[in-house]
């Protein structure tokens, strides 16, 4: 997602923290975050182009072979270097500290928290599991109304921006409040299944990746070939998908 998407996911998640999580996150957040996880959820995007962090770039995606509409960890996450591998890795780093305070390796737990929060966001953006051949839609040039862009940016930013302008009085916080209300009422029966992980796992990103490539094939790539102008029809039919992914994302991160 873009900055607004990550901010929304982390803001929603904050509302579902249990007491121990509130305490632990506050301890781990950098000073400049002002106690807000949402303030630092884009940090991995801010640094990924810096020379010393360039290796993190591949952790924002999983590489689905072209036209395959399913996800396989062994095929799509070579050497664990992908968004699902990163979620497992940073979950284990944070666990190693909370389960056994005498852990030998001292990870940077502040970075682990910011990476985990960001990648939990990215794995829910369908085109972050998009096809390797078109770089998850980055190479699919389209128009968003009158603006030239690419399909990946439509899903990272444009759908959220248009929703904010059209329905939420250009206010991200009003959009977030609307998602929080939908979680309380419309999706309340779904929240328990969104929260749970099979087999007592602490984190379970693989099904999230499978959902995303399924949504990418059904919604993102459909009727969006190179050179297409995407307008109201695409926006109105895809906005519910994006809003549900952001809300689900916040629940699962918390």
């Amino acid at each position: 997602w873009g900055d607004d998407g990550h901010y929304a996911v982390c803001k929603i998640a904050q509302g579902y923290f249990e007491e121990e999580t509130v305490v632990a996150v506050k301890k781990l957040l950098p000073e400049y975050a002002g106690g807000e996880l949402a303030a630092v959820c884009s940090w991995p995007d801010d640094i990924k182009k810096l020379p010393q962090w360039r290796w993190t770039g591949a952790l924002h995606f999983a590489d689905t072979p072209d036209f395959k509409c399913n996800y396989e960890y062994s095929r799509d996450c070579p050497k664990d270097v992908c968004v699902t591998g990163a979620i497992f890795n940073y979950t284990n780093q944070l666990l190693s500290a909370s389960e056994n305070s005498h852990s030998i390796v001292h990870y940077n737990l502040t970075e682990a928290l910011m990476f985990l929060s960001h990648y939990m966001g990215d794995i829910h953006q369908p085109l972050h599991e998009g096809f390797l051949g078109d770089l998850g839609g980055n190479r699919v040039k389209v128009n968003w109304y009158s603006q030239e862009t690419n399909l990946h940016r439509v899903w990272d930013d444009m759908i959220i921006d248009s929703a904010r302008e059209t329905y939420y009085n250009s206010s991200l916080s009003i959009m977030i409040q609307s998602l929080q209300a939908k979680l309380k009422y419309g999706w309340s029966n779904d929240v328990p299944s969104w929260k749970s992980c099979p087999l007592n796992q602490k984190a379970c990103p693989n099904p999230y990746a499978s959902e995303s490539i399924d949504l990418a094939c059904k919604y993102a790539y459909t009727n969006a070939t190179v050179g297409t102008t995407l307008g109201d029809y695409y926006f109105l039919s895809r906005l519910p998908v994006v809003e549900k992914r952001l809300a689900q994302d916040g629940i699962r991160l918390a």
Partner: peptide
């Protein structure tokens, strides 16, 4: 739910 599961994990008893 992921952060809640991580931070609610009880510390293992230090091995004797």
């Amino acid at each position: 739910a992921t952060l809640n599961r991580i931070f609610s994990a009880k510390p293992k008893l230090a091995r004797a």
